[in-house]
Simulated assay, not measured.
Amino acid sequence: MPRVSEAHLAARRQQILDAAVRCFTRNGFHQTSMQDVIKEADLSVGAFYRYFKSKNELIMAIAGTKISEVTGILDHLLTLDPMPPLPVFLDQVISQVEATLAADQTVRIAVQVWGEATHDDEVAEVVRDVYGRIRERMVRIAERAKDSGQLPADADAFGVGAAIFGLIQGYILQRILVGSVNQQIYVEGVRSLLGKV
Rank of each mutant, 00 (worst) to 15 (best):
M1H: 14
M1P: 05
M1D: 09
R3N: 14
E6V: 08
A7D: 14
L9Q: 11
L9E: 12
Q14E: 08
D18F: 13
A19L: 00
V21F: 00
C23R: 02
T25M: 11
F29P: 00
H30C: 05
H30E: 15
D36M: 01
D36H: 11
K39I: 11
L43F: 12
G46A: 14
A47N: 10
Y49M: 05
R50C: 04
F52L: 00
S54F: 10
L58S: 05
I59K: 07
I59R: 10
M60W: 14
A61I: 07
A61T: 09
I62T: 01
A63D: 07
T71S: 07
D75Y: 12
L78C: 07
P84S: 05
P87F: 00
L90Q: 13
V93C: 14
S95P: 02
S95G: 15
V97K: 04
V97I: 13
E98D: 12
E98L: 06
A103M: 08
Q105Y: 08
V107S: 02
R108L: 14
A110P: 01
V113H: 02
V113F: 03
G115K: 11
G115H: 09
H119V: 05
D120S: 08
D121H: 06
E122I: 13
E125Q: 10
V127T: 02
G132W: 11
R137W: 05
R137V: 01
M138A: 08
M138H: 08
R140L: 06
I141W: 05
I141D: 03
A142Y: 04
D147I: 07
D147C: 07
G149C: 01
P152E: 11
A157C: 09
F158A: 12
G161F: 05
A162M: 13
I164P: 03
I164F: 01
I164T: 00
F165P: 02
L167E: 13
I168C: 01
I172N: 01
I172R: 02
L173K: 08
L173P: 00
R175M: 06
I176W: 15
V178W: 12
V178K: 09
S180H: 11
Q184C: 04
I185K: 12
E188Y: 01
G189V: 10
V190I: 13
R191Y: 00
R191T: 02
S192M: 08
L193G: 03
L194I: 04
K196A: 14
